[in-house]
Nucleic acid binder design. Structure first.
Length: 837
DNA sequence: CCCACCAACTTTTTT
DNA sequence: AGTTGGTGGG
């Protein structure tokens, strides 16, 4: 830890930097150099301290100066080190002020990490630097410039759930479902259009109006757009697209940012979509002499930046990416952005980083072999100097639960051998796969944390509480108002809601004003009173955060508590007899704690800042490195992370590659990249597992080994139980890797089967009859079971064993048991299927 | 307007 | 399997 007397080291680097700051730290043209055009000559000599430890390619990437630089960074090649040193070098050498740097990362977590590392390199001098995600950066710009495009700075950000809710209303109102419109499909289509920067009018012009389907879609799109505008809201895709439109429509506004950001760095460039690409293009555009004149007339310091003809040259652009890790095509990511970078930015310098500092050679060889099957790629081979390491371990379970048990057992072995839980991760393709894993992990008393999935902020009770806050911050947000109108129940049903809406429509007032005027609607006294009470509550809360309030502005937790008390939301949950409501009340309490934490990290943070932060949290942001738990996540969430040991589960056909990807062009290749990303997260140990049968929709379906398994040289995998060996249950299907599968000729597949058999596998350790799907459906409560070391017990799956120790308290009491047949296990006493003998 | 019961659908990945 | 949405009686 560096400690400088002048550095406010208490800076909340762990929180997302979203405060609407001024242009502090920006010293305009008195700044060092002009950015891109600055020559090397007037720069102090290279700082050996900064670049120590970099290999020649890394160093070149960190030190190169020019208008455009593409760093092709293979997995684990130290690109974050390069980026942070590049930024630190620019500042250290006084080529740029911190405020002239814009660094875009994929997640907030990556942004925070980068900020911390830059600060560590510079001893804290990173104030004014923008290091954030595309979405966070755009929100900052849009809030600043909201009035220019007819919004207010307190606009709401609609997440995909909000978008779906809104579309559902519209589709229902238009009876569009009879034409085959689904919420998901429509949302997807609109999202695609926005990512392609096709706005409503453009799309309407090109639409085929003789197709009733097209006409209906246009109508939905139109109503959706209008609803967003009226609600003073943007959806996720708008954040990027609207910023681009803003820059294109208002060159003077664009010039402010073009002038400010002289060095733009973009991480994970292979996953940018067209809108993000366009945004980068706008930001790196030179400023025309006439606009520069205007900036100067406004008192902006620009004269030292201008070139011979009076223009301000475009910012310098650095992008980092690896087309082999492009896994977001489904979201509009366009691999061409990185493949055609040299064409888009003529004169661009390209640096390749191929040395891997993360994984063992065995892991890298497997990764290289897999990705080599994607044909239209630049060949690139990762290598490492650390040696072969352990073999990859493979396992084929009889069921998803058996597979999960294998994972749990191996994790315990690793832990016993000294590996921290937090250095272990379990990956899967779909969130649904967490169920079996969680059931087994809970039973095994294995500490774990699920990243993403059903997120905290997606829970109904949290969305309810948030809707109260949103209604206060943005009274135009009808979606939020509708949500809280009858939550908790206060007798305001759909009929009343419709009356309020049409009253607002008829009188040309907002829904919120209609609520204030509920007395003139001629509703029953009880309903009228309920509406007015809610309306007053919101008004009082709004007064509490009004900057003009002489009593001062209340903090976010105070406003939230006020709303929770006034609405009775929390009280209703507490008094409910539904046992799940207890947990919901705890979640709401947790939200209050979150707001407290927010205020601690952002003393000047406003309610809008808080809402922004919440809207933009990603699955990967939740990862807390200090927690001593195993991390469970999807392969997508895993991107950019690394772990000592990685378990890649469900390596089966229809799961990886996923069934849904089969029809999509480039689907199988993208799924292969996903597999590649998963493999390359592992530093020391890699485990690949699959199951013979997998439960889905309550039915148990037969699963086949993934085609990608064949692509790994057989001698790299040590199969504890190979797909070829673990057949027999039911006997109708061959488990072997050459089992009939579309798209694979029978000719070459026997070889694979043989190699798996030759690869050696031990006999199944346990009698299979004990296994199939016995885990679910057993509700037990052993809270009263008293166990002491020495007791003998019987477990429904593991047989008999002796208790060696008991740890933990209350509901979390854990028995350490030495079983006769399966060895040592840890069991959560409360729910383990055990009996004392 | 509220609640209880039954039918249908879910699961691809996410800022 | 579990949740969500629709329907019908109170």
């Amino acid at each position: 830890m560096t400690s400088l007397p002048d550095a406010p080291s208490s800076s909340p680097s762990s929180s997302v930097p979203i405060i609407l700051d001024g242009w502090e730290g920006d010293r305009g043209d008195r700044g060092p150099g002009g950015g891109a055009g600055a020559g090397r000559g007037d720069r102090p000599g290279p700082d050996e301290r900064l670049f120590a430890g970099l290999n020649p390619q890394q160093r070149e990437a960190a030190e190169y100066r020019g208008p455009a630089l593409l760093i092709v960074a293979g997995a684990g090649s130290g690109k974050t080190s390069v980026l942070t040193r590049r930024i630190a070098g620019l500042i250290e050498s006084r080529e740029a002020w911190p405020s002239q740097i814009l660094a875009i990362t994929f997640t907030n977590k990556a942004a925070n990490e980068m900020r911390e590392r830059v600060e560590a390199l510079l001893g804290g001098r990173a104030q004014g630097m923008w290091i954030s995600t595309f979405h966070s950066s755009c929100v900052r710009i849009l809030r600043r410039e909201a009035e220019t495009i007819g919004k207010t700075a307190s606009f709401t950000i609609y997440d995909s759930g909000d978008t779906r809710a809104l579309l559902k209303r519209i589709i229902k109102e238009l009876d569009a479902d009879t034409l085959g419109f689904t919420v998901a499909g429509t949302a997807n289509r609109i999202s695609k259009l926005k990512n392609e920067l096709t706005d409503l009018e453009t799309h309407a012009r090109n639409a085929n109006l003789s197709d009733p389907n097209e006409v209906m879609f246009l109508e939905i799109f139109r109503q959706y757009t209008r609803a967003l505008r009226r609600a003073n809201a943007f959806d996720f895709d708008d954040l990027i697209a609207e910023t681009v439109y803003l820059f294109r429509a208002f060159p003077k506004v664009a010039a402010l940012y073009q002038r400010r950001f002289r060095h733009i760095l973009v991480d994970e460039y292979q996953d940018t979509n067209h809108a993000q690409y366009a945004l980068i293009r706008e930001l790196t555009m030179p400023i025309a002499p006439a606009i520069a004149d205007e900036l100067e007339a406004q008192g902006q310091h620009v004269e030292r930046m201008r070139d011979a003809v009076g223009a301000i040259p475009g910012a310098s652009l650095t992008v980092v990416g690896d087309s082999d890790q492009s896994i977001y095509a489904f979201r509009g990511a366009d691999i061409r952005n990185i493949v055609e970078f040299e064409r888009d930015f003529p004169g661009a310098k390209v640096v390749l980083l191929e040395q891997n500092y993360r994984s063992t050679q065995n892991i890298l060889s497997a990764a290289n072999a897999v990705i080599a099957n994607n044909f239209d790629r630049k060949d690139k081979r990762l290598w490492t100097a650390v040696g072969d390491g352990d073999k990859i371990v493979g396992y084929t379970g009889y069921s998803g639960h058996d597979e999960a048990q294998f994972v749990a057992d191996e994790i315990e072995k690793l832990h016993a051998a000294g590996m921290d839980y937090k250095d272990i991760a379990v990956f899967y393709r779909t969130n649904a796969q967490t169920r079996a894993l969680e059931e087994i992990f809970i039973r095994s008393a294995l500490p774990y944390k699920v990243m993403g999935g059903t997120k905290f902020y997606e829970r109904a009770e949290i969305k309810d509480a948030m809707a109260y806050l949103i209604s206060v911050a943005n009274p135009d947000d009808i979606l939020a108002l509708r949500r809280i109108l009858n939550t908790p129940k206060r007798g305001i049903g759909p009929a009343t809601e419709t009356q309020l809406a049409s009253y607002a429509e008829d009188n040309g007032i907002s829904f919120r004003d209609a609520m204030r005027d509920a007395g003139s609607l001629g509703l029953g006294p009880k309903v009228t009173g309920a509406i007015l009470q809610l309306s007053n509550l919101l008004d009082e809360a709004a007064a509490k955060i009004d900057p003009a309030n002489p009593a001062g502005v209340s903090s976010v937790p105070d406003v939230l508590t006020f709303l929770l008390d006034g609405s009775g939301l929390l009280e209703v949950l507490r008094n409910s007899r539904d046992p799940q409501d207890e947990a919901r009340a705890e979640n709401v309490d947790e939200l209050v704690a979150v707001t407290r934490e927010f205020v601690r990290n952002n003393p000047d943070g406003t309610l809008v800042d808080f809402l922004t932060e919440v809207s933009l949290v990603a699955a990967a942001d939740e990862i807390d490195d200090s927690s001593g738990a195993v991390s469970l996540m999807t392969l997508h969430t895993a991107k950019g992370l690394e772990y000592d040991a990685v378990f890649l589960t469900g390596v089966e056909e229809d799961l990886l590659p996923h069934r849904m990807s089969a029809n999509e062009p480039g689907g199988p290749a993208e799924e292969r990249r996903l597999f590649y990303v998963g493999i390359t997260r592992a530093k020391k140990r890699l485990f690949l597992s699959l199951a013979m049968t997998r439960a889905q929709f309550g039915e148990t379906a037969v699963a086949m080994p993934s085609r990608y398994l064949q692509e790994i040289p057989a001698d790299l995998i040590d199969w504890r139980q190979s797909p070829g060996a673990a057949n027999g249950r039911g006997g109708t299907q061959s488990r072997a890797l050459n089992a009939r599968r579309p798209g694979l000729g029978a000719g070459d597949s026997g070889r694979w089967n043989d190699s798996f058999r030759a690869g050696g596998f031990s006999k199944p350790e346990r009698p299979k009859a004990e296994w199939p799907n016995r885990v679910t459906g057993q509700v037990r409560d052993n809270s009263d079971l008293e166990l002491v070391p020495g007791d003998r017990i019987r477990h429904t799956d593991f047989g008999e064993g002796r208790v060696t120790a008991v740890t933990g308290e209350g509901a979390k009491r854990v028995a350490h048991v030495q079983f006769e047949t399966v060895g040592a296990k840890k069991l959560l006493i409360k729910i383990a299927p055990i009996d004392k003998l």
